[in-house]
């Protein structure tokens, strides 16, 4: 693979990482949701329409995508948070399916089956790393905060969290809002890099590969989804040379091995803490 191809691959890895952080944001509060794909679709097509038809500048349209994504996250939260765990996950998958139907049928807005063009101004390293860095910064700041502790508590044991005065719904609403903003921004960047988006750009495939990236990298620390996304985008490209189209067998196997031996993913603070504790015990003996 040449340098230009690597450049493109890693840029897409950055966008996947942003999608992965979007999934992580709600998973942190104990909600498995594929809604980020839907948030991404809505903001990407809004981006295409706002820049191409309304003549908005790409940066203004990016801001619109972020805010719109956040609002959509809030709306989705009110819609689906009354459901229990797996029904909730199913409902977010349904959102992804509905998204495709909307894209196909709202032709004037999305270009329908043929898809639509989007400006490539934001398809640069600057915007890719800038947005990813900002998202990671927000999550890193929140980690040890009042919200961060509450989010982890709700995820691990919502009943005990409640007995400490934490409202799981309120915490999850924040999670969905963050998820919406990140997903919205990721959608805009995806559209900028591809410069063409259609009904299949934001569909189940994107959702499941991103989810796989989160599982691989680890869903208990913000660094996990980023690493998982980079591995999951770069590895297939590396394997395509020697293995041809069998590359997905290797990535699939890798995922199974990770789930079996590192169920909490590559980046697992709990494992690090256990190892550190063991090291201390050995030293003190």
């Amino acid at each position: 693979m040449n340098l230009a191809a690597w450049n493109t691959t890693l840029q897409f890895a950055g966008v996947s990482a942003l999608f992965a952080l979007s999934i992580y944001a709600s998973l942190w509060t104990g909600v498995l949701s594929l809604a980020p794909v839907f948030f991404g679709a809505v903001s990407a097509f809004t981006f295409g329409w706002a820049t191409m038809t309304l003549g908005l500048t790409p940066v203004a349209a990016l801001a619109l995508g972020a805010v719109g994504g956040g609002l959509l996250g809030v709306l989705t939260a009110f819609l689906v948070l009354r459901l229990e765990s797996h029904y909730l996950a199913m409902a977010t998958i349904a959102l992804v399916l509905i998204g495709r139907v909307l894209v196909i049928n709202m032709e004037g807005f999305t270009g329908g089956v043929a898809g639509t063009l989007a400006p490539g101004d934001l398809g640069t390293w600057f915007w890719c790393l800038g947005c990813l860095g900002a998202a990671a910064y927000v999550l890193a700041r929140l980690r040890g905060s009042r919200f961060g502790l509450a989010a982890s508590a709700v995820r691990e044991d919502p009943a005990v969290a409640q007995s400490l005065g934490i409202s799981p719904r309120a915490v999850q609403l924040v999670g969905f809002t963050l998820s919406g903003v990140f997903g919205g921004v990721a959608g805009v960047l995806q559209a900028s890099f591809l410069q063409f988006i259609g009904p299949d750009t934001f569909y189940t495939h994107l959702g499941f590969t991103t989810l796989a990236a989160v599982v691989l990298g680890g869903a208990y620390h913000w660094l996990g989804p980023i690493i998982g996304a980079v591995v999951f985008t770069a590895l297939p490209e590396l394997l395509r040379g020697p293995l041809g189209e069998f590359d997905s067998i290797v990535t699939g196997l890798l995922l199974v091995v990770i789930i079996v031996y590192l169920p909490r993913g590559l980046v697992d603070l709990r494992r690090f803490r256990l190892l550190r504790g063991r090291g201390k015990a050995v030293v003190s003996e």
Binding site: S152, E156, L269, R273
Partner: peptide, 8 residues
């Protein structure tokens, strides 16, 4: 006992 796994 119900503690949160992974927390110090």
């Amino acid at each position: 006992i119900r503690l949160f796994p992974g927390m110090t």
